[in-house]
Computed example of a mutant assay.
Amino acid sequence: MQVHQMRAYHRLERFTEVPMLVLAIVYLLLEIFPQVISVSTEVLRLVEGVEWFIWALFALELISKFYLYPNKLRFLTTHWADVLIVTMPFLRPLRLLKILVILYRTWKRSRRLFRQRALNFVGLMSVLVVAISAGLVLVFEKGQGGTINSYQDALWWAVTTITTVGYGDKFPVTPAGRGVAIFLMFTGITLFGLLTATVAAFFVDDEKEPQDQEVHDRLVRLEAHVLELKALLKEKQGREDSL
């Protein structure tokens, strides 16, 4: 029984990997959209409706995986980000935390998906981090007497910050805005480090074929065999006890 559950779980995981990644990106953009563009009440309600629909899909995926995974406690500890996303209510004070959690989950999903295309992964994460950081800093800085009062200003600031250029013509003045700046600075260093390592690996080791997927498949088969052996041993022990 456990063997079939694990196989079904991995099939579901492979099937939902790309759709859930796309939905996470759409959700992040929807969170920022009303903050950077003035929209009518009808459009805002539509955005919130789409957000609830995406949340329902997240919840359905989580419940399905939880049902199929044999070790429930291990599932909860290894999928804590998914649990937070589903259980976190749509309250404005928690939106920043929710955005950060979904961004982290998007990073993990895209890292697995692009494990053989590191350059694509770095490019995708760079665009997401810049767009989201620009939206967040605009929320905190707009109308505070600083130099960032439009999304164009925020986007320019985010690009110059993540590339470590830092012209200094646009900068946050509020504590929350500076917190976003610190996050973006450290993220920029990380992404540029990944980019440098990826380019170096391309020239130094361009003939080596990635084998991560093959190793993953072998581990999945090994885990299925272990579960099957456990089931057989349990069944054998039950027969011996009955005798």
Results as ranks from 00 to 15, higher is better:
3 V>Y: 12
3 V>T: 14
4 H>T: 15
4 H>C: 11
5 Q>W: 09
9 Y>Q: 05
11 R>Y: 00
12 L>Y: 03
15 F>Q: 12
18 V>W: 01
20 M>G: 05
21 L>P: 00
21 L>S: 06
23 L>T: 03
24 A>R: 08
25 I>K: 08
26 V>R: 09
33 F>C: 04
35 Q>M: 13
35 Q>I: 12
35 Q>A: 11
38 S>F: 15
39 V>W: 03
41 T>N: 12
42 E>F: 01
42 E>G: 03
46 L>W: 05
48 E>K: 10
50 V>F: 02
52 W>V: 15
59 A>Y: 09
59 A>P: 01
60 L>D: 10
65 K>L: 03
65 K>N: 02
67 Y>H: 14
70 P>M: 03
70 P>Q: 04
73 L>Y: 05
77 T>K: 11
77 T>H: 08
78 T>V: 03
79 H>Q: 07
79 H>T: 06
79 H>I: 04
81 A>C: 04
83 V>D: 03
84 L>M: 14
86 V>H: 01
87 T>Y: 08
91 L>E: 13
91 L>N: 13
94 L>V: 07
98 K>M: 00
98 K>F: 03
100 L>D: 13
100 L>R: 10
100 L>K: 08
103 L>T: 11
106 T>C: 07
109 R>V: 11
110 S>Q: 02
112 R>I: 13
113 L>R: 04
115 R>H: 13
119 L>F: 10
120 N>V: 12
120 N>M: 15
123 G>P: 00
124 L>R: 01
129 V>L: 12
130 V>M: 02
133 S>Q: 06
139 V>K: 15
141 E>I: 10
141 E>P: 08
142 K>L: 04
143 G>H: 01
148 I>L: 07
148 I>M: 03
149 N>T: 04
149 N>G: 08
151 Y>C: 01
151 Y>Q: 02
153 D>S: 00
157 W>C: 07
159 V>T: 02
159 V>M: 01
161 T>F: 00
162 I>H: 00
164 T>W: 15
171 F>N: 13
174 T>V: 11
176 A>H: 13
177 G>R: 02
180 V>S: 01
181 A>F: 08
181 A>T: 07
183 F>S: 11
183 F>I: 14
184 L>R: 00
186 F>H: 07
187 T>R: 06
188 G>I: 11
191 L>R: 04
191 L>W: 03
194 L>Q: 10
195 L>S: 06
198 T>V: 06
198 T>G: 01
198 T>S: 01
201 A>F: 13
201 A>W: 09
201 A>C: 12
203 F>I: 11
204 V>N: 09
205 D>I: 08
207 E>S: 14
209 E>M: 06
210 P>T: 11
213 Q>V: 15
213 Q>T: 12
214 E>G: 02
217 D>E: 05
217 D>A: 07
222 L>K: 09
222 L>T: 07
223 E>A: 12
223 E>V: 06
227 L>H: 05
233 L>R: 10
234 K>G: 15
234 K>A: 15
234 K>P: 12
237 Q>E: 08
238 G>E: 07
239 R>D: 10
239 R>C: 09
239 R>V: 14
240 E>V: 10
240 E>P: 00
243 L>P: 08
